[in-house]
Design a binder for these strands. Structure first.
Length: 292
DNA sequence: AGCCAGGCATCAG
DNA sequence: CTGATGCATGGC
C-alpha cells in the first residue's frame, strides 16, 4: 500500500489496519486487514464487518484477499534465488513487500492509463473521483456509502467533460476509447490473460494512450503477468546505476534486462528496485536530488 | 516561476 | 534510429 505500486487506489488506514469495502459473492463486506506478523509467511489477521456473515462468506473473502495480495507468491524462494544479487539489499529492508493483483482488471487498465505522466497521489485521487462520479453506489456496513468502479459500458458513454472534472486531463479520450473497444469486443482483457506476454503487450500498445509502460502496468497489476516489468522514470534511472555503472540505456533495454535476469519474477524485482530507489531518494538532500 | 510526476504521440534530423 | 516537444493538472 505504501510503495505506491498498487493495482487500484491505496486503501485507507485505521488503527494499524488497511480497510476496504466490496461486494463479494453478492454480499457487502468491509474487511480490515492487519499487517502479518511474519513478512515471509503471511497470515494477516482480518476483521470482517457486515450483516449475516456466514462460513461461505468468510471463505470467499479469504480467497479474495489471498488473490489480491498474492499471498501464494513464495517470497523466501525469490529471496533465496537472487540472494547474491545487488537487489538483495532491498530484500532485507523491505522483507514482505508484495505485488498486488487487481480484483477488477478493467479498473486496473484505467488506473494504468491515469497513472501516466502523473504522480501516485494524483492518479489515486482521479480514480477515486471516477468511482464516485460514475460507479454504482452502495450503502456499506455501518451505513457508510461507497462506490465501486464503473463498467466499461458506463465509461464508454461518459462525456469527456465529466471525466475531465476528475482531473484526467488529456487522458479522458484514452479512457473512453479503451472502454469502447472493450464494449464492442475488439479488446478482450481476459483473452489477453491467456496470451503470451509479448503478444498481449503488442496488442495493448495498439490502443491510443497505451505505450510500453502502461501496457506492462496492466499486464502485471491487472492480469498478474509477473514477467512484465514496467519501466518508469524511476526504474530507468535506477537500473543503469545499480547494474551497469551508470551507462546510458533505453527504457526498452532496461525492460529486456529485467526480464532476462529475473524471468517470471521480473515484475517482483521491479517492485523491490522501485521501492528501494524511491526510499533512498527521499533520504537525499535537495542538492543531491538535483544531481539526478 | 518553473519543473516534475509510475508516458505517449508526433515530428524533425 | 535518437532527440525534442506538447499535452492537463497539481504539488513543491
Amino acid at each position: 500500500m505504501q510503495s505506491g505500486q498498487t493495482s487500484e487506489p491505496y486503501w485507507p488506514q485505521i488503527d494499524g489496519a488497511y480497510w476496504d469495502t466490496d461486494l463479494i459473492n453478492g454480499k457487502l463486506v468491509r474487511y480490515e486487514v492487519y499487517p502479518s506478523p511474519s513478512a515471509e509467511e503471511p497470515c494477516p489477521h482480518v476483521h470482517l464487518i457486515g450483516s449475516d456473515i456466514d462460513e461461505e462468506t468468510i471463505e470467499s473473502v479469504k480467497n479474495y484477499l489471498i488473490e489480491l495480495f498474492r499471498l501464494r507468491d513464495d517470497l523466501p524462494l525469490f529471496y533465496e534465488k537472487f540472494r547474491t544479487e545487488k537487489i538483495s539489499r532491498a530484500f532485507k529492508d523491505y522483507s514482505g513487500l508484495r505485488l498486488m493483483k487487481a480484483s477488477d482488471p478493467y479498473e486496473s487498465l484505467i488506473c494504468s492509463i491515469c497513472s501516466q505522466h502523473s504522480s501516485v497521489e494524483q492518479w489515486n485521487r482521479t480514480v477515486r473521483c471516477i468511482r464516485a462520479s460514475f460507479g454504482p453506489r452502495f450503502i456499506g456496513p455501518g451505513g457508510s456509502t461507497f462506490f465501486s468502479f464503473p463498467s466499461s459500458e458506463t465509461l464508454a458513454k461518459a462525456s469527456t467533460a465529466k471525466l475531465e472534472s476528475c482531473q484526467t486531463g488529456y487522458r479522458a479520450g484514452y479512457i473512453i476509447s479503451a472502454s469502447k473497444m472493450i464494449v464492442d469486443g475488439r479488446l478482450d482483457l481476459m483473452r489477453l490473460k491467456q496470451a503470451p506476454y509479448e503478444d498481449a503487450k503488442k496488442e495493448l500498445m495498439e490502443l491510443p494512450g497505451i505505450g510500453p509502460k502502461v501496457a506492462d502496468c496492466f499486464l502485471l497489476y491487472g492480469l498478474g503477468q509477473t514477467r512484465a516489468a514496467p519501466v518508469d522514470i524511476w526504474i530507468h534511472r535506477i537500473v543503469p546505476r545499480v547494474y551497469f555503472g551508470g551507462a546510458k540505456m533505453t527504457k526498452e533495454e532496461v525492460g529486456k534486462f529485467l526480464r532476462n535476469r529475473y524471468g517470471e519474477w521480473a515484475g517482483l524485482a521491479q517492485l523491490y528496485l522501485y521501492h528501494y530507489g524511491r526510499m533512498r531518494f527521499k533520504t537525499l538532500t535537495p542538492a543531491a536530488k538535483k544531481l539526478l
